[in-house]
């Protein structure tokens, strides 16, 4: 029983910051502190009038969509290879691809910065961020897709080939539909990661900041903070929505493969 109390207290700890977001986003006062001043939707209105924010959102969406697609493609290759014949060094190769999962992001950021700016002498742009985000999202995609592929009976594809399909046809007609939920969930997760990512984006962004970089800039201006709260509220709502959809697809994937649920994404 005390364990349950602790668990609930822990959830409160986890959710405290998020729950405060809407509170201050609708608070009619520029100081982010209690007591509250009254209800307003002004901050949301101001979001709509800020052109720089729109550019940032656009840049972020562009980056997140492309990173999600690229990372999911790379993840598909790796996860598919994972289910196939093993060869010497496979574990090492896999481990290396998964490395960004534990590598501090600042290391990825500075090493790419050095290469792009100092070695290749190129300018920074959204593309540098896309490349980096693809790198850090790929391990998450692999983890999700591995689950999707591991649930497949390997003789399923052979059965399709046996019934006259080509190798590609068997993949398209059998494997792909069965891992589609995993692919959707991988796309959504990497989209969310990229959209939120700050540390790397801060080092690598060019002329247009991404949304987190833009928010970072706003945090220095106290009068802008309520706007940040409003933006955060929208982002949190969006993230929860995307994650719920991702979770829904992940479960449906399990249900399709006729399996029972065993736990979360990772």
């Amino acid at each position: 029983m005390s364990l349950r109390l602790y668990a609930i207290a822990y959830l409160v700890f986890l959710y405290a910051p998020i729950l405060l977001l809407p509170v201050f986003a609708f608070n009619d006062g520029t100081i982010i502190a209690f007591p509250l001043q009254g209800f307003t939707t002004e901050w949301f209105g101001e979001l709509g009038r800020t052109a720089a924010l729109h550019d940032a959102v656009q840049a972020s969406l562009f980056i997140a969509v492309l990173s999600a697609i690229l990372a999911t493609c790379l993840g598909l290759c790796a996860a598919r290879a994972g289910t196939m014949a093993s060869f010497p060094g496979k574990r090492g190769v896999m481990g290396f691809i998964m490395l960004p999962l534990v590598l501090p992001e600042i290391i990825v950021a500075v090493s790419l910065l050095v290469v792009v700016v100092q070695v290749l002498d190129l300018g920074l742009s959204n593309w540098t961020i896309i490349l980096a985000h693809t790198l850090i999202c790929t391990p998450f995609c692999i983890a999700i897709l591995n689950g999707a592929f591991a649930n497949l009976d390997p003789s399923m594809e052979e059965a399709a080939i046996d019934l006259g399909e080509t190798r590609w046809g068997a993949f398209r007609l059998i494997t792909l539909p069965l891992v589609t939920p995993g692919i959707v969930s991988s796309l959504l997760i990497s989209f969310t990661i990229s959209l939120d990512e700050f540390i790397i984006a801060f080092f690598l962004s060019g002329n247009t900041p991404t949304m987190p970089v833009y928010i970072w800039g706003l945090l220095r201006f106290p009068e802008k903070l309520p706007v940040v709260m409003a933006l955060g509220t929208i982002l949190v709502a969006l993230s929860i929505l995307l994650l719920t959809i991702a979770e829904f697809y992940r479960r449906r994937g399990l249900a399709r493969a006729g399996l029972r649920d065993t736990g979360g994404f990772l």
Partner: peptide, 20 residues
């Protein structure tokens, strides 16, 4: 001759029924 062109068909041990 590749598997999908052979005049053989197989009943797999796991049956490999397509679940979708």
């Amino acid at each position: 001759v590749e598997a999908h062109h052979r005049p053989t068909n197989m009943v797999f041990q796991s049956y490999a029924i397509f679940p979708h």
